[in-house]
Design a protein around this nucleic acid. Structure first.
Lengths: 347, 347
DNA sequence: GTGAAAGCGCTAACAC
DNA sequence: GTGTTAGCGCTTTCAC
């Protein structure tokens, strides 16, 4: 325990044991260069002997750095956000700081109360997927922060890290096209959501790049849920030409999983009759039948990049910036290769 | 900001504004009873006017309570542990404390380093799914803690909260029996794992209760993975009587999902030819085809109960205890009802 | 019912 | 290169 009294050792105990002053100990601990080798050695020995461990509360109080970072995400139970949290955790550990994690449930009141907790804990900075429409709470207290997720774009003059949706959509369209699917249908989220507009815009932009007419693409609006995707798929199926191969690009994986269900319910086969492409990369996509081919967002990368960005922000050594983390294709089995199939039939 | 200088308001600013002493402010904040209504009112007004928020670092330093709790789980990315974290988070928020979350990856070295972080942050207590074989690190520093998950049973003289595996296994066997499945096969984890023995023992115990001979049950050892379950299922299929309905109780959901895959690969149907029951309740089970019928562990409940237990532990107002949180059945479609099927054929 | 004063463990000037 | 000193913001005796 470090001393006779049985309390935890303090810097004074270490100083006494090493026969130096508090400041010398503090300097060794901080890795200051102006220390004699001998003193440093004695301090290190004393630290070991006493079992001393720095009291971050005291450090934080004096230095103004608590060694704590805050992370506020919608729901730690959502696999994408869990990945983000993991990425942030690992990076924070690497930097020697710890992470306070909060779930907001997309609820502004909860978010506000988490912000209060962050301020009271005197976190050195925060990584936030914002739900409320203003960040005054944070600004007012001068807490450095970095926004994550795509909703961050609502806020000018902030740093943010999110998925590169435009690139992901390009990837998705290209996969579909490369596999022989012309004019895929689109299952989108509800009109109210910003994400819907961004996804759609990305599709349009890429169509234009490809000399395709985007207005030809059939779209179906729905909720970002399994049931939403299922319902949308049923509508698409009802309106589709029988016998003609159909392909669908869903704006998230949950809807894509629902679409697969709907195809089976209609007595059709995925991918033989209809090909389905998702967007997210949730783990459940690996266990559906067929496995879901999807565009995967890199949550872990977003989390770790956000920590790095936050450190920049804390150091104030950079302007605000937006970082877009690229997505990647995960091919499983829900998108048929039409060209290959034709070759097969010929043979 | 609370004062002219633009720094965050302190208790002194509040005291000045309210025209009372620091101590009076502190007493109001702490909810002490011996305060005149008038003073209390003026303090409250001053708090609002200054935008004062308690500095938890200073509070912790002086009072010895940081208002921080630690949570060390194997992986926040694992849906079960994410549920646990969420339960703990919500309960902690309710109690006015914040949660530091760490992932150990079942790695003793990482665990040790997280313990150090917990000690340095001076958390008031910790909730831990232990990987290492001893908890001396924690004991030595007198940090109150509660163990979670079933591995906790390795440690005598500790408090713990985990799933009631015995009850869950009973639930599973009863579902199988009720649906007309005699003598289900068992897909278990590797021999090295404690969890395997506990699961098997629970099955045996329940068989004895039911006057069944447990030695009649075919078992297959494997890894706790999708591929493990798939391989085990193929072996079971190879050894099974053709045409006779087969049922399998898997010790976790990942293996069960693999088993479903194997059944399809063998050209058979689940649940028509073989029924599969899982154990865990992971979200992916809802998206497989057929949906996985399983015994669900209540991670959220475990998390929130662990926080309550930890508070008991911190208050020292109870002996060590073990709490077993009950599991529940989630019926989806992977277990056929043999009795119902027969009725159907007759009709 | 309230105030004055001490001090938690540490860092950061400032001296030497 | 090292020691001395003054607090950081709060809680908690101890007076009155």
């Amino acid at each position: 325990m470090g001393n006779e009294a049985g309390r935890r050792a303090t810097i004074v105990d270490v100083a006494k044991k090493a026969g130096v002053s508090k400041s010398t100990v503090a300097r060794v601990l901080a890795g200051s260069p102006n220390i004699s080798d001998e003193a440093a050695e004695r301090v290190r020995a004393a630290v070991l002997a006493t079992g001393y461990e720095r009291n971050h509360l005291a450090v934080g109080m004096r230095s103004g750095r608590s060694g704590l970072l805050g992370l506020v995400i919608p729901d730690i139970t959502n696999p994408f956000w869990a990945e983000v949290a993991r990425g942030a955790q690992d990076r924070a550990a690497q930097e020697g700081v710890s992470l306070l994690v909060f779930s907001s449930d997309w609820d502004a009141a909860k978010e506000a109360s988490h912000f209060r907790a962050l301020r009271q804990a005197r976190v050195d900075g925060a990584i936030i997927n914002p739900v409320a429409d203003n960040l005054d709470d944070l600004d007012r207290f001068g807490m450095p922060f970095v926004l994550i997720g795509s909703s961050a774009e609502r806020f000018p003059d902030t740093s943010s890290v999110g998925s590169d949706i435009a690139q992901g959509v390009r990837l998705g369209m290209d996969i579909l096209l490369a596999h022989g699917h012309r004019n895929p249908a689109l299952i989108l989220g509800p009109k109210s959501r910003l994400a819907r507009a961004r996804f759609l815009r990305a599709v349009h932009d890429h169509c234009v790049e490809l000399d395709m007419d985007p207005s030809v693409l059939r779209t179906e609006d729905s909720d970002y849920t399994v049931d939403g995707g299922r319902a949308a798929m049923h509508k698409l199926l009802a309106a589709a030409d029988k016998g003609k191969p159909l392909s669908v690009f869903c704006a998230n994986d949950l809807m894509a999983l629902g679409a697969i269900l709907a195809v089976r319910e209609a007595g059709l086969s995925c991918p033989d009759d209809v090909s389905i492409l998702g967007f997210d990369g949730i783990p459940s996509g690996a266990f559906s039948w067929p496995g879901l081919t999807t565009i995967e967002k890199d949550g872990r990368q977003i989390g770790s990049t956000a920590v790095i960005s936050l450190f920049e922000e804390m150091a104030g050594r950079s302007d605000h910036h937006r970082i877009y983390v690229p997505c990647r294709v995960v091919e499983r089995g829900s998108v048929a290769n039409l060209s290959a199939a034709k070759v097969g039939r010929v043979a």
